[in-house]
Simulated assay, not measured.
Amino acid sequence: MDDQMPMDTMDHGMTGPMWMPSDPPTLSGLLAWQPQPYAILPILCAVLAAFYAIGLVRLRRRGIRWPLGRTVSWYVGVAMVLWVTATGIEAYGMAVFSVHMFQHMILTMLAPVFLLMGAPVTLVLRALPAGRGRRGAPRRGLVRFLHSPVAKAASHPAFTLSAFVFSLYGIYLTPLFDILMSSVWGHYLMLLHFLLTGIVFFGPVLMVDPWPGNRSHLLRMMLMMAGLPFHAFFAIAVMMSESPIVGFFASPPPAWDIDVMDDQLWAGGLTWVFGDVPTLVVMIVLAVLWMRSDARLARRSDRKAERDGDAELNAYNAYLQRLADHEAVAARSGRTVQGPFRTR
């Protein structure tokens, strides 16, 4: 390969056929398709895209409509994962901290939101056959898993927030990053961890799919805001550090003429931006979902009132009338009212 060179295993501790471009990072180089030693994540993206398409076909055959926005959101999320793992972003991210952090933020803070808004679990539940026989076993197994202690623990705020914080402080401020980057599979494991961390964190917040628990919109907003300070403090720590916080990125190729500390400043800035902007977007989404939920509840109440002649409202009005009559009688007799039907 004329335009590529093997990664310096002495400086970066990498083993295996990891390759990166020989030229310094450019916009065209970052966007260009780059061959990978193992196409693990591109294959994963292809599988995710194919399974979603199969689910759509099954729903169409059964005459079930599926929102176009969910489909678009899912494939945008898949495209984002493919973009940062099969192009120059993946290649240059092996040597430049700011490029790697951009990849991390896309995998954790942006792609999961689009994937979750695609409601893949709901699609699977609707596409799989129901029933008590063998055909319905996969669907029953998925439902049991969603109600299992493991799923409940994985969606608990204590776990989701801890995983989110660990993906920053536990990886970059400890030797764990260098350990993971010492092998090809460790690198891919870390990228998958970033993606899964974002899904686990944003899943119970968005609650588009049937995640365990029944949290109010206000509590979900509070959970979303809880991760913001940790994100901001980490970004500040990166930008204010007077030495490279990750030894792996301390020695980029000399021919690239990259100022390590200036690049680290960019990395911290990207971390800060990707903490604020996605949080704002998710908060807007939550507000929209909240309003839609209230609108659905109002429509449901209206339909119930039409069916039963507004029996609930009539019963409540009758209760208020009885209370007023009771208070009037108590006032005439000179007694003090202590409760709806208790006087003294």
Rank of each mutant, 00 (worst) to 15 (best):
I106N: 03
V121Q: 00
G339K: 14
V238Q: 11
Q103P: 01
K152D: 03
L68A: 15
E90M: 02
T87C: 08
H100E: 15
H156A: 00
L44V: 09
S162F: 04
W66M: 00
M105K: 04
A163P: 00
M101P: 06
I89V: 14
R342I: 09
H147A: 09
M20T: 02
M14I: 07
M80E: 08
K152P: 00
P35W: 14
V238K: 08
M239V: 10
G136H: 05
Q103S: 05
A86Y: 15
H217Q: 05
G29C: 10
L30Q: 11
V150A: 04
W272H: 12
H193I: 00
L206F: 09
Y188Q: 13
H12E: 02
L142H: 11
C45R: 08
L27Y: 14
L286S: 06
P212W: 08
P210E: 13
N214D: 15
M7Y: 09
I106V: 06
A311F: 15
R126E: 12
V96A: 13
A163F: 02
G133I: 04
M239Q: 12
H193Y: 14
V285N: 13
L196G: 00
P17V: 04
Y188I: 04
W19Q: 09
S243T: 10
P149S: 05
W272A: 07
I258C: 06
L180A: 06
R134D: 05
W33A: 09
Y169M: 06
L289V: 03
F233R: 03
S98A: 13
L116M: 07
Y92V: 02
V57S: 01
L82I: 00
G93P: 02
D178K: 11
